[in-house]
Design a protein around this nucleic acid. Sequence first.
RNA 1: GGGGGAUUGGGGUAGCCUGGCAUCCUUCCAGCUUUGGGAGCUGGAGACCCCAGUUCAAAUCUGGGAUCCCCCA
Length: 479
Amino acid sequence: MALENSKEKNFSDWYAEVVQKSEMADYSSIQGCMVVRENAYGVWEAIQEAFNAMIKAIGHRNALFPLFIPKSLLTKEAEHFAGFTPEVAWVTRGGDTELSEPLAIRPTSETIMYESYAKWIHSHRDLPLLLNQWCTVVRWETKATKPFIRTREVPWQEGHTVHATKEEADAEVMLILGFYKKILEEYLAVPVLIGKKSDGEKFAGALYTTTCEALMPDGKALQSATSHNLGQNFAKAFGIRFKDKDETEQYAWQASWGMSTRVIGAMIMVHGDDKGVVIPPRVAPLKVVIIPIAYSKPEDAKKVAKYCEGIYAKLKAAGISVKLDDRDDKSAGWKYNEWELKGVPLRLEIGLKDIEKDAVMMVRRDTGQKNSVAKEGLEKSVEDELEKMQHQLFEKAKKSRDERISDAKDYGEFKKALEDKKGFVRMSFCDERECEETINKETTATVRLISFDDHKPKHKACGHCGKPAKVTAYFAKSY
RNA sequence: GGGGGAUUGGGGUAGCCUGGCAUCCUUCCAGCUUUGGGAGCUGGAGACCCCAGUUCAAAUCUGGGAUCCCCCA
């Protein structure tokens, strides 16, 4: 067994161990600031590539705004500032000189971006403005940090768009939420529920927030990406106005949306096992590793090496990300364990027995299944198996997630489901802040999302307080 | 926010109570040998989290700090 901790028995320790040993992340000497290592950064690059393609196809472009935000700017939208102020890191000196105004290290970039937006937008012809940036933000977390899941410096993307009408902003919010769902489900193979946040959980300064929520094996929900309609709140604070076709001056409507490397934490938690991480093929930086079986007879060794090189060239020519692990100081078994730890989706074991059959032994990372596959048409066999694995990972995760969604018609059922099933509990809800806070105090669960498609709640009364139910809400404990 | 535990070569650890030569496994380097699920032998390199204090002497005792993990709110 590659790992000392078991995912089943000791989830937190397992996570800390697997993250480090698989070379996804490492700790640094700054609390809560992790090193995103090559293996995880490769996954992030795959996410960037996929997401950039999605947003650029409909007119978004990438830009990069300053890391620092003057205090006066950050405080302009009162609700926003109040929401972020406890966790802002400040720069107060430059060299030996005290700064005349403290500079915040961006906790999110609404304010620094919208100062510019106000200068750039004058006419309806300037709209929509569709920008995104890939960067890191800093939130000075004081609670326990966890690699990828909660860190002080967070690599992410943040999109900030400006529209002429509320309807257009609404459409943008939903469009991007759909992209996030696609990235999580079709790339990371992590099933998510989508919906709206309650007032208590929405983004500071937003009209409303939508979210993708995943469920981790320990029963905690993980907010994986959010997309907000900011209304005209920021437009009014920053003076983002435009002259419409009818020559009236109007405040713009805005949306903002973000997804961070947290989703990599979700991927590790959902798919990993006691051998290491499992990286879904579509985001795996390395998809196939070839492991030659070594022999002491020089002619045998040569024969295997040559055959392996042929297989390697064949796959590489087909555009498949492949590595030939021909290190001569490690045994085959050792290599199996190492690549399993790192989560490479497919392994090809090649020895004399395979060469005789003009085949390779193909092994799946997730199931351990071994199949002898013909050399002829290997590219297709590999691609098919990768695609199959991608789907099976998602289906397995979805089944497990679905089994942990329960329905509660009253508070007794609610508490029981929360304890027994350890997952999402669906309940008709009054959507009042006070009621939400009471439930949180008594059970530690929060409203993770309010269902979109189910606005007519199943029951007439709120499962907790008995007042008229307005919505169907999904509750869970969360990270 | 509250409580508990931990920190010793690159990784994992013993030693700490009762102060004095730092244990074992793994990794790394050299060589031989081996290779279908973490092989073996020989030789070599490498460590007491940081800052003060007590002491002839501190991994060990005292105070402060940093970081990590866990549990509870």
